[in-house]
Simulated assay, not measured.
Amino acid sequence: MKTNSRIYIAGHRGMVGSAIWRALEAKGYSNLIGRTSAELDLRNQEEVMNFFHTEFPDVVIDAAARVGGILANNNYPYQFLMDNMQIQNNLIDASLKIDVQKFIFLGSSCIYPKLAPQPLKEEYLLTGPLEPTNEWYAIAKITGVKACEAIKHQFGKDFISLMPTNLYGPHDNFDLNTSHVLPALIRKFHDAKVKSNNKENIEPVELPCSEPVELWGSGTPKREFLYVEDLAEAVVFALENRLPGSLYNVGTGEDLTIQELSVLIQKIVGHTGEIHWDSTKPDGTPRKLLDVSKMTDAGWKAKTSLEDGIRKTYQWFLAQEGAIKEVKITQP
């Protein structure tokens, strides 16, 4: 791949897309293309085809999607299914028709069956029922994976799918109504700390934070988390190498319970109150750990530890919230 190749990153303003953009710039790629949703509605097939016939990208990286946590998936199933199918179908079809050199489709580990053996291997796809709380998003992503596989099989084109585990990092969504678990935990512990501090007219950094935090479920499910900048490096790796397969898991190969994650985030944020678990709320899939041996064998491995990644993410959150003067991140 040449550094002046025309690379279109769909969703370049989001957490994943912006990380990919930064990673490519750092590697010297100078001809990056991006459009906001206001400039280009990826759900509109005519708009997408007109864009492709104007720009003629050499590479397309699909980091565009409607995303959210359990609550958002439950409340908006049609939008999670249809919006994502329209976005990816338009991008995949246009890329095939104008003969792009490479297409990289980004999905999610939720494509695998709820009770599949752990760790999750790529061949477990479509071997059992999905987790009901996010099946709409998962079904959409599965169709994208199979479309890329079909194109690679039928036309021999370099269309591949990367399935990252749970992502987090700068530009994440911290809205408690639509966010995933890790940013939601950061937001909850941070808000509880600030609320506790504001109850007393003293220097907030010195005040013990007694405001309790209520979290969903039992805390027993196990999850794997990948820092978004590591995913961006995996995308660059896939861009610069022709991988023989059509589907690759991208993760760390390590997981922990939601309870362990909560304690870690609580320490990093500096909250010292109690944690209350609401067992009436759903847990989701009991465990979701990726087998990342295919990517490891290909030559790529994640490098950011979970604690380091969370600290960097919280620093970014504080800077965006304008709260850096209110609280201090605890040090190791």
Rank of each mutant, 00 (worst) to 15 (best):
residue 33 I to S: 07
residue 118 Q to G: 09
residue 102 K to N: 08
residue 182 L to V: 10
residue 173 N to H: 11
residue 21 W to R: 07
residue 218 S to A: 08
residue 279 S to D: 02
residue 121 K to S: 02
residue 79 Q to S: 13
residue 34 G to L: 05
residue 64 A to G: 09
residue 196 S to R: 02
residue 314 Y to Q: 08
residue 159 F to A: 08
residue 65 A to F: 11
residue 139 I to M: 03
residue 13 R to F: 12
residue 286 P to Y: 12
residue 128 G to W: 11
residue 191 D to M: 05
residue 143 T to V: 13
residue 77 P to F: 07
residue 132 P to K: 03
residue 184 A to V: 01
residue 133 T to C: 11
residue 135 E to N: 14
residue 102 K to G: 07
residue 194 V to P: 05
residue 95 S to W: 00
residue 255 D to G: 14
residue 250 V to L: 01
residue 244 P to E: 15
residue 76 Y to K: 13
residue 214 E to F: 15
residue 17 G to D: 04
residue 109 S to N: 12
residue 307 E to G: 08
residue 216 W to C: 09
residue 194 V to C: 15
residue 304 T to W: 09
residue 75 N to K: 15
residue 283 D to H: 03
residue 242 R to M: 11
residue 115 L to C: 09
residue 70 I to W: 06
residue 84 N to S: 14
residue 73 N to T: 05
residue 143 T to N: 13
residue 173 N to T: 13
residue 316 W to G: 00
residue 170 P to D: 07
residue 12 H to L: 03
residue 68 G to A: 10
residue 274 E to A: 09
residue 182 L to K: 04
residue 147 A to I: 08
residue 86 Q to N: 13
residue 84 N to P: 13
residue 60 V to C: 02
residue 214 E to S: 14
residue 59 V to D: 06
residue 14 G to F: 05
residue 11 G to E: 13
residue 297 D to Q: 00
residue 20 I to L: 11
residue 325 K to V: 03
residue 110 C to R: 03
residue 303 K to W: 10
residue 180 H to G: 15
residue 41 D to L: 05
residue 195 K to R: 13
residue 71 L to R: 15
residue 191 D to P: 11
residue 200 E to D: 06
residue 272 T to H: 10
residue 283 D to T: 08
residue 111 I to D: 00
residue 304 T to G: 06
residue 229 E to S: 08
residue 113 P to W: 04
residue 324 I to W: 14
residue 289 L to A: 02
residue 253 G to M: 15
residue 290 L to D: 01
residue 201 N to K: 01
residue 279 S to A: 08
residue 180 H to F: 12
residue 126 L to E: 04
residue 166 N to Y: 10
residue 8 Y to F: 09
residue 50 N to H: 13
residue 99 D to M: 00
residue 278 D to S: 14
residue 195 K to M: 03
residue 76 Y to C: 13
residue 86 Q to S: 06
residue 281 K to G: 00
residue 2 K to E: 15
residue 294 K to R: 11
residue 273 G to Q: 04
residue 323 A to F: 10
residue 76 Y to L: 13
residue 62 D to I: 04
residue 299 G to T: 02
residue 157 K to G: 12
residue 85 M to K: 04
residue 244 P to S: 06
residue 240 E to R: 04
residue 162 L to F: 05
residue 35 R to M: 09
residue 58 D to L: 11
residue 69 G to S: 07
residue 7 I to Y: 01
residue 151 I to P: 00
residue 149 E to R: 03
residue 12 H to K: 01
residue 288 K to C: 10
residue 168 Y to F: 15
residue 156 G to A: 07
residue 78 Y to D: 12
residue 68 G to Y: 01
residue 245 G to M: 04
residue 112 Y to K: 09
residue 143 T to Q: 15
residue 318 L to D: 11
residue 60 V to K: 08
residue 231 L to N: 08
residue 17 G to Y: 03
residue 247 L to I: 11
residue 14 G to Q: 06
residue 53 H to E: 13
residue 76 Y to S: 14
residue 247 L to W: 08
residue 260 E to K: 06
residue 41 D to G: 04
residue 8 Y to S: 05
residue 318 L to W: 12
residue 72 A to K: 00
residue 22 R to C: 14
residue 110 C to G: 03
residue 326 E to F: 10
residue 6 R to S: 15
